[in-house]
Amino acid sequence: MTLTTVDGAHPAPLRPATPIPTADSRTPSALLRLAATALPRALIARLAGIMVRSLGGSHPKLLRDLEHAAPARIHVLPTDLPYGFALDIGRMPLALTVIERDAGGSDAAVAASVATLIDLLEGRIDGDTLFFRRDLSIAGSTAAIVELRNVLDREEIALSAELARPLGRFGRPARGLARRLDRLVERAGARVAALHRTLHPSQDADRDTADLLDQCRTEIAALTSRLGKLEARQKRRDEARA
């Protein structure tokens, strides 16, 4: 193993965050994203309400903790959906509503992809790790976000189970079907992305150049910092010799 020391070179860009695999309980995030894009917002809003009620039944302590948290309106903004959600905690009953992405009036906001947000909700991935890797961004009241994150992490939540609960005995086969559909959607998505890259190579090149520029800037900043330290060290040595 090679460790990069404090005085070492700046690291290469990070790998994407990898959640802990739990295949059987995994929520079909690609399918959910597709459904969330295609379904009318009124239906999404109703599903959000059903999910909150279902969570109240299966995780009463979670609901109690969120209702007794410091009052805050938190905007949850999936980066790959055209809309977001507003979660009002610290009030009874807890409310989850659909909002425009640029809606105002929040105390805090958290943004990440649908898949990342689901992994976070289900405790498969660490929020701080996502933050270090810049796969998740937050704004506004950090205390509200930290409290929400910690309260959610106390419970073992399976989103697909919550969404399937109202289906009763059909819930289990529905989840199996959803997982199969999810794999199909994921494969189709990968093919579309590959086709898009073939048709629009210049956009990728632009993005790569921007990323490279950012990396160069970061590298220069790290080297400048290191140079400063070396200069200071040399100066101290010179002074000691004198």
Partner: peptide, 18 residues
Amino acid sequence: PQGLGDLKGEAEGGRETF
């Protein structure tokens, strides 16, 4: 064991040190 020591993925700043 080889390959088990790298935990940079979970590390603050994405780097490790002794």
